[in-house]
Amino acid sequence: MTLSRPERIDLLLTPQRQGREPQQRAQLDSLAAIERVVIDATIDLLAPGQKFALLWSLQVGENAVAGVQIKERDGTVTNLMPPTEVLDYLTDHKRMSYNPDVGAWLSAEIFIAGPTRYKTNYSTTAVADWMPEISADDLTAEFAAFPRPDAEIPDWARSQLDWAARRTG
């Protein structure tokens, strides 16, 4: 399944469902359980006739966002904000999947074609160019919260941190 490259979406930083009381969410104890819940919640957003969705999340330092892109039959892409608990569960997933040898994932893409037809990509090194920008402060916070060996810091992140240090130093 291939979705068209989306435009960068800053509007996803605004909650979709204002005025609703937050519900208590279950604490899930496995990565598979978290994936099941976020996939089901994403499928619940689909309207009749919509078949393919991309659930994405960017989580670097204090910058944590998520969105859903739905490919329409005519090829257009509709962008939605997932329920708040989806971002919360993805944050749990990141924390639970942290590995000190490689770090924690920075971006996630889950391509969904049905309840049992999906493909996940959690990247510890890459962030799609259409995702929100990452600041040097967010990178610094990320590597403090989820340390990794120097060799596992992506070149683009190292360059951004070096540039920020030269600019302020």
Rank of each mutant, 00 (worst) to 15 (best):
R20M: 03
S107E: 08
A145R: 13
A157D: 04
T42K: 02
F143K: 15
R36V: 12
G61Q: 12
Q24M: 09
A113V: 05
P132S: 02
V127R: 04
D137R: 09
R5L: 09
F52E: 11
W130R: 01
E72H: 06
A151T: 14
Q27E: 11
A151D: 13
L87M: 07
F146G: 02
I153S: 02
E72V: 15
E85F: 11
L161D: 04
P115R: 12
S107I: 01
D44S: 15
V68R: 06
T125K: 06
V38W: 05
D137L: 14
A145N: 14
I153F: 04
E152V: 04
G19W: 04
W156E: 10
G114F: 02
T84A: 15
Q160T: 01
T124K: 05
G103M: 07
D29K: 11
T91Y: 11
T140D: 07
N63L: 08
I39H: 01
D92I: 07
K119P: 00
D10K: 04
V37Q: 04
D138V: 03
I134Y: 04
M81A: 13
D10T: 10
P147H: 09
F143N: 10
Q50A: 06
S97N: 08
G49Q: 05
G169Q: 06
A64E: 02
Q50N: 11
K71S: 11
L80N: 05
Y118L: 04
R148L: 01
T124I: 12
G67C: 14
I110A: 00
L46V: 14
A164D: 15
E133H: 01
E21P: 00
K119W: 02
T91W: 07
L45M: 14
Q27A: 09
Q160P: 02
D155C: 06
N79R: 12
L106I: 11
E72M: 08
A151R: 03
Q24V: 05
E109A: 10
R73H: 12
L54D: 03
D44N: 08
A108M: 13
V60E: 07
M81V: 13
I70A: 06
D162I: 13
Q23C: 01
S4A: 13
L87S: 10
A108T: 11
S123E: 01
I9A: 10
Y98C: 02
D40P: 03
Y89T: 06
T84W: 07
L106D: 01
D101W: 09
W156G: 05
K119F: 08
A66P: 08
I134F: 14
T76E: 10
A26N: 12
D10H: 07
A151M: 04
E35Y: 01
Q59Y: 10
P22G: 07
T116G: 04
Y122F: 14
L106W: 02
L31Y: 00
W130C: 08
D150I: 06
Q27P: 02
M131G: 03
P100G: 02
I34S: 00
A26D: 11
R73E: 06
S4W: 13
K71M: 14
T120V: 12
P154V: 15
P48C: 13
A33K: 14
L90W: 00
G75H: 02
T120G: 03
F111M: 15
T84F: 03
T84M: 09
